[in-house]
Simulated scan of single mutants.
Amino acid sequence: MASSSKKVIYAALIGNGLISITKFFAAFFTGSAAMMSEGIHSLVDTGNQILLLLGLKKSKKPADKDFPFGHGKEIYFWSFVVAIMIFAVGAGISIYEGIHSLIDPHPVKNPLVNYVVLGLAMIFEGFAWYFAWKEFNAARGDRGYYEAVRKEKNPTTFVVLFEDTAAMLGLVVAFVGIALGQLTGLHIFDGIASIIIGLILGVTAAWLAYETKGLLIGESADTEIVAGIRKIASQHEAILNVNEALTMHMGPNFILANISVDFKDSLAVSGLENDIAQITKEIKKEFPLVKRVFVEAEDHTQR
């Protein structure tokens, strides 16, 4: 999964890098605010891919004394930074450019250049979107689209897809804005298109920030995994009651589990150790993402 995620990010990085250069050239050559917004959008997306690759690399660092559970949450942090970048830089500058264009509207020169660049950008962006969509579908499985986004623990699978979807929408808006300005002679459509692109980026950033926030501060594993952990523990004869089964994602592929159980009072210390070891072994075998298991002995009547 990590390897395929990197392929998606690299595809988006190369595509957005090339597209941003052509968009800036077209914006400089034609004076289009919408095209300038699109250039900024692609440049921000290029930077975002670099940040995601940085997050993936840092998340692979082994555990140490300062971070005993590893650095898996690095990918959550950098995904959150990506959301901030989209909002602060992409959306902010696009809206600014649009407002400036509305205050001082001017005709777009050589609109054919914009159409050619936007058409090429749609093709390149379409390929990047397809790769991101394919990766997201593979991770989604049988879940619905909304549920898949809410429950996906590897944010790169939906961050890149959201970015590419926003990029495709932005291209369509820029195309329509430039075309309406040319057809009607009203130069304000270029500025309006730039503002709409900024709003699209703002909504995308807000949604990404919302989805990555839970992972960043410590989101639990899926309910199926939590229920499975409780079931495994409760099936042991030495356990009278499973008080709690608490989980936390320390990274996309690392779940920490803490189980509070009430053992039989007659259980010997050696039996207690063997039972804990067996519970841990069964949980890790059933759920490979669970890397660390802590079992806490606690009388449920004293809770």
Rank of each mutant, 00 (worst) to 15 (best):
G47H: 04
K134L: 15
A277K: 13
L199N: 01
F28N: 09
P252L: 11
V295Y: 05
Q302P: 08
I259D: 01
K285Q: 15
L53S: 10
V269E: 12
A139L: 08
I217F: 10
L171D: 01
V172E: 01
T204M: 00
S266D: 12
D45N: 08
G141A: 04
V172D: 02
W129A: 06
K281F: 06
R303A: 06
A268I: 14
N253R: 15
I99D: 01
F162C: 04
H71Q: 06
G214H: 11
I283T: 00
I195H: 01
A206W: 09
V269G: 13
I276W: 05
K281L: 03
K281Y: 14
K109W: 11
R303C: 07
F87L: 12
I93E: 12
F124E: 09
V113R: 12
A233L: 03
L246S: 04
T165M: 04
S4A: 09
A148Y: 05
P111K: 07
G170Q: 00
E286Q: 07
V176E: 04
S79N: 07
W133M: 15
S194N: 03
S4L: 13
L54P: 13
V160P: 10
G92V: 00
A193M: 02
F263N: 10
D265N: 12
N253M: 13
A138D: 15
H106K: 09
F189M: 06
S194R: 02
I192N: 05
Y96P: 09
G271E: 06
P155K: 12
I93P: 14
G202W: 03
L112C: 14
I229T: 01
V117S: 07
G185N: 05
G214L: 09
Y96F: 13
E286T: 00
F69H: 06
E135H: 13
D265K: 11
E298P: 14
I195W: 03
